[in-house]
Amino acid sequence: MNDKPAGGILIIDDDRKISNLLRLYLEKKGFKVSVVLEPEEAEKEIYLQKPELIFLDYRMSPLTGKDLLEKIRIRGNDAPVIMMSAYRRRDGDMEMKRLGALAYLSKPFDFGEIESLLKKIFPRR
């Protein structure tokens, strides 16, 4: 994995306000960030942008974050994914692990938690 954030972070969440907040936070941290609001477009963007990290919302329509993750994993994409959800953390943990998500991030965000995840993914930054 490239330690430079140049490959960028992709946020996939159909909630524009939340996506913007997260983008703002990540950009302030110096990351290059793109946002996809339509889950149907997400897969295409993943292949085009080749992000180094994906923030993926669990609950989207018509395609859920879980469906999307399954889809990209089947096609061999192993980009690190942080699954976001307003559901309680415990419900998601097991399932996310099964699907190969790196971490599970509950909403509302704890920026401290995001920061430690970023440090783990990009240790030399």
Binding site: D15, K17, I18, Y25, K107, P108, F111
Partner: peptide, 16 residues
């Protein structure tokens, strides 16, 4: 979802 989504935005911006 409906309570936490706005809360995420409120809390996030307040924090920033």
């Amino acid at each position: 979802h409906e309570l936490k989504s706005p809360l995420t935005v409120i809390k996030g911006y307040l924090k920033l």
